[in-house]
C-alpha cells in the first residue's frame, strides 16, 4: 500500500521550465514517476523531457484528467499563487518544494487546502517518495529501497542519511515524507503518523525532528493519547544549537524558551519513542525492534 503517493499518482510539475524544474522532472521520469504535464505561464506549447507544457493548471488537467498531484517548484514570490491554482483545479495533493515562501502565503494556502479536502506537503521540503513506485520530490531515488519503515521528517539531506542507514541494514521504507523546514507547513508529524497507522505495509515509523516549535512535543502527546500501535524511533537534530539563532531552516530556532531539543527528546522518550542519538543508531534500533 504505502501512503500519499504510489503507482496511481499522476503528476503535474508547476515551474517545469526552470532549471530545477526541468532537472527534477527528468529525475522523476527516470525513477518511473508518471509526470503527465508541466505548467509555466506563458510557456504553453513547449515540452520538457517530452512532457507537454501548459500555461495553466486548468489546461493541464483538462488535457490529462488523471492528474491528482502537483509538484510546485515555482520561485517563492509566485509559489503561493501556484498552490492556490492547483487547489482550484481540485488537485488533492500539492507538494511545495520552494524555499523562502512568505509565511502569510503559506497560512492562506494551507487553510484553503483544508477547506477543499486537499493535502499540502511543505513548503521548503524535499517531497515524498514511495520507493520503487513514485517519487514526487527532489530526493536521490537510489538511496531508498521498498520496505516496512515509514519516515516522516522536517529535514532533507538528513532524511537521506537516515534512509540510507535503514536501506543498508536491509529494512527499506514504505513511504518517506519530508514535511518541510518552515515554521508553518501543511501536513505535520501527527497527520503523517495517522496515515502510517492505517497503512498495512508500514510496521514501524521514524520521526526525524529538529529544534524549533513544538511539533515533536505535539506528536508525542498524540502517540500517548491514541496509544499508537506501531513502534516509533525518533531523532532530533540540533542538540548543540545555541538559542535565538536560526539554524538554516526558517523553522529551526530555539526562541523564547520554546523549541529546545531537551524538551522534545524528553516528550518523545516519555511517549515510548526510542530516541536515537545518531543516524546510524536509528537503523540499529529499528533492526532490534523489527527482528
Amino acid at each position: 500500500m504505502a501512503i500519499l503517493v504510489d503507482r496511481d499518482t499522476y503528476v503535474v510539475v508547476q515551474g517545469v521550465t526552470g532549471r530545477q524544474g526541468a532537472f527534477h522532472t527528468r529525475a522523476m521520469l527516470k525513477y518511473g514517476t508518471k509526470v503527465l504535464a508541466g505548467v509555466t505561464p506563458g510557456k504553453g506549447g513547449q515540452n520538457v523531457e517530452g512532457v507537454p507544457v501548459y500555461d495553466s493548471v486548468a489546461e493541464a488537467v483538462e488535457n490529462h484528467p488523471q492528474i491528482n498531484t502537483s509538484l510546485v517548484m515555482v520561485p517563492a514570490p509566485h509559489a503561493g499563487d501556484a498552490v492556490l491554482e492547483a487547489l482550484n483545479s481540485n488537485i488533492k495533493l500539492v507538494v511545495v518544494i520552494t524555499e523562502h515562501v512568505p509565511v502569510h502565503d503559506a497560512m492562506k494556502f494551507i487553510n484553503y487546502a483544508m477547506l477543499r479536502n486537499s493535502h499540502i506537503i511543505g513548503p521548503n521540503c524535499p517531497g515524498v517518495i514511495t520507493p520503487e513506485a513514485a517519487k514526487v520530490g527532489i530526493m536521490p531515488g537510489h538511496i531508498f529501497k521498498r520496505g516496512k519503515v515509514g519516515i516522516v521528517s522536517r529535514s532533507g539531506t538528513l532524511t537521506y542519511e537516515i534512509a540510507y542507514q535503514i536501506t543498508v541494514n536491509g529494512l527499506g521504507q514504505s513511504t518517506c515524507v519530508g514535511i518541510g523546514g518552515d515554521p508553518v507547513v501543511g501536513l505535520n508529524f501527527i497527520d503523517v503518523l495517522e496515515m502510517f497507522r492505517r497503512d498495512d505495509e508500514t510496521e514501524a515509523v521514524v520521526l526525524i525532528g529538529e529544534i524549533g516549535g513544538d511539533l515533536e512535543e505535539r506528536a508525542a502527546e498524540y502517540i500517548v493519547r491514541t496509544r499508537y500501535p506501531k513502534p516509533v524511533v525518533g531523532y532530533i537534530a540540533g542538540r548543540t544549537a545555541p538559542p535565538e539563532k536560526r539554524m538554516g531552516h526558517a523553522g529551526a530556532i530555539i526562541s523564547l524558551g520554546a523549541g529546545d531539543p531537551a524538551s522534545k527528546i524528553k516528550a518523545l522518550n516519555e511517549a515510548g519513542v526510542a530516541v536515537a542519538s545518531t543516524p546510524k543508531e536509528v537503523a540499529s534500533k529499528l533492526v532490534s525492534i523489527l527482528k
Binding site: 539531506t157 538528513l158 523546514g181 526525524i208 531523532y235 537534530a237 540540533g238 548543540t240 539554524m247 538554516g248
Partner: peptide, 17 residues
C-alpha cells in the same frame, strides 16, 4: 560544512558526541 540544515546540525551534534 554540511549540505542541508538538518544534516549540518546532525554533523555538529555528532562532533560533540
Amino acid at each position: 560544512i554540511g549540505n542541508g540544515a538538518g544534516l549540518t546540525m546532525a554533523t555538529m551534534d555528532m562532533v560533540k558526541l
